[in-house]
Structures are given as C-alpha cells and as structure tokens.
Write a protein that binds this DNA or RNA. Structure first.
Lengths: 124, 124
DNA sequence: CCGTATCCCCTCCGATACTG
DNA sequence: CAGTATCGGAGGGGATACGG
C-alpha cells in the first residue's frame, strides 16, 4: 500500500484502516446502500428498511458516518420533528469503489465453500 | 448496488457483505498488506511484522482468508516445519481496489475531526 | 516453528423503556 | 417522529500455556 515502513498500532497504520473500522461495522454498508437508493431518507424510514436494527445502533452508525463526512443530517424544526439523512459527495465516490468491490466479488464467486485443508498445498 | 429487491438478513443481503464481514475484522487488511509486500511469508515472520497480534487470531484470520480464496498456504514437511503464505490472484485484484480506497481516503482527508452537531444543517 | 486450547475481559449490538 | 438511557447476552480478540 503506502510506503510506510513501520506498522505499529492496528488502528492507525494507514488511513484506510480508520475508515475501514467504521465501514466494517455491522449495518454501515447497508445504511449507505439504502441512502444511495433514495438520496434522502428519514430516521424511521431507514430503520424500517433495515428491518432488525435498533434505534440505538442506527443512531450510532449515522453519527459515525456523519463524523466521517459520509452522511449529512438536516433537521426541520417541525412538530412532529423531521430529520433527513443523505449521502455526501464523498460517499457517492465511495459508492463507486464499493461497486467495483461488488464486481470483484461477482467475478470470483466460487460455486461453493471449499474446506481450507483441501486446497492447502503440500510440498512433496 | 445489485438489483436485489428484498433485503432481509444483514449477513447475506448482497455478496459484498460477506467479504466485508471478513475483511472488516481486525488485522485482516493489515495481513493482506503485509503479504502484498513480500509475496511469500512465514507464520512467525508475519506475526512479528504485525506486532501485537496473537497466534490465535493470526491463525484464525489466515484461515478465513484462505476460505475466501485470498490466501494460499504451502506446507513444507520439514523439521522444523515451514509454512508459507501468499496472496492469490484474486487477492491481488482486490489490492487494486483497496488502493483506490486508500486514494479516496487521501483525497478526502479532513484537516481534523469535526463535531457532528457543528455541521448538521438546520432548516430555518 | 507452527499452530491449538483455554480463559477472560471487553466491546458490540439487540431489547426495552423513556423523553423532547 | 427522532432519538437517548440502561441493561444484558454473545462473541471478538488478547494472554498464556501447551502440543506436533
């Protein structure tokens, strides 16, 4: 990757790791996916779409994604309150990469799982 | 992402999620990174390079990566035993994508963290 | 040297209940 | 509607010890 010679702490070796630790968490990717299909979405709408996520975690994820600059939050001071979430330009670029990843996955899709020991090569 | 109409279980919504859950785990990315720099590496060598990982976890990660077809294991029946790990062609393609991700991260690198509430927009 | 077995902590995340 | 507070179970992952 980068030419960084010394790798010490796993959390901050290269900058990718940081974002990876956010994106690697459960629901993060699905949240992005859902946001990408609707371009703007409300909290409970998103919660319903994800079907199984709790308010706690959804709120947590959205906050993390907002901190990373991937999601924008817009609050309408109404009653009842309305809050809309949407992807940033940064996140939309990320989406492209994710799609490439999806492409990569599809390209290498194996017919089924293989036991590791079965394909491990032994020198004769 | 894909055109899958119904999304139910978070673990298998689309195929990307699966690989994501493997790659999202701690050390996975760093293991790939280290393997990419040396093209073949032994267990303890890798362990030393990662500095902080336990044998248990390293072994576990390598097994997962092998199951995903990203890593190959070659056992030399010697005394003392020698085992060499290397990236598959599949993983090398993945590396390209990871590099794009790194690129993306670098491009959007913020000067410093911003409090979420500070950038949240309120409708006036 | 290359791992597995065990223990144990600690974080993640789901459930529930409650506020503005 | 849009969250926060709190609790509790499950599992990831570190430390240590041991085996082939």
């Amino acid at each position: 990757m980068s030419a960084t010679p010394t790798d010490a702490k796993p959390g901050s070796t290269c900058a990718v790791i940081d974002i990876w630790e956010v994106l690697g968490k459960r629901w993060s990717l699905l949240i992005i996916k859902n946001l990408s299909t609707k371009e703007t979405i409300r909290f409970n709408e998103l919660k319903r779409a994800l079907a199984g996520i709790s308010s706690t975690v959804l709120s947590e994820r959205l906050l993390e994604l907002e901190r990373e600059g991937l999601v924008t939050k817009k609050i309408y001071p109404e009653v009842p309150p309305r809050v809309e979430y949407s992807l940033t330009a940064q996140a939309k670029e990320l989406e492209v990469i994710i799609k490439e990843l999806a492409h990569w996955v599809a390209r290498w899709k194996r017919p089924q799982s293989v036991a590791p020991s079965a394909e491990t090569k032994k020198e004769e």
